[in-house]
């Protein structure tokens, strides 16, 4: 897979290395900016409220539930 990408890149080895670095940084950026923020709430670290549901559902259900 990576070999295939490497062969597709233009230029000599140095140019390919630079392009690879840029590609890696772009992937990391997309992960940190879009993918991880989406995935993080799926983990339980954000469940800090008492409402019997995840934190996200808290606000709406609260009033009816809180007695």
């Amino acid at each position: 897979m990576y070999g295939w990408i490497w062969r597709r890149l233009p230029g000599n080895a140095w140019v390919r290395a630079v392009i690879s670095l840029v590609l890696i940084l772009a992937v990391v950026y997309v992960l940190f900016q879009y993918v991880f923020p989406w995935a993080e709430p799926l983990l339980p670290f954000g469940d800090v409220t008492v409402d019997g549901a995840s934190a996200g559902a808290g606000a709406g259900r609260e009033e009816g539930a809180a007695r």
Partner: peptide
Amino acid sequence: TGVNTLKKGLGHYPGTAALGGRGNFAVAGH
């Protein structure tokens, strides 16, 4: 106490008392 609110700080439960008010001022945090 929404997910995005709690990313920025502590969250006050809507419907609970106001700060310093009579009742229960409830706050959630990570």
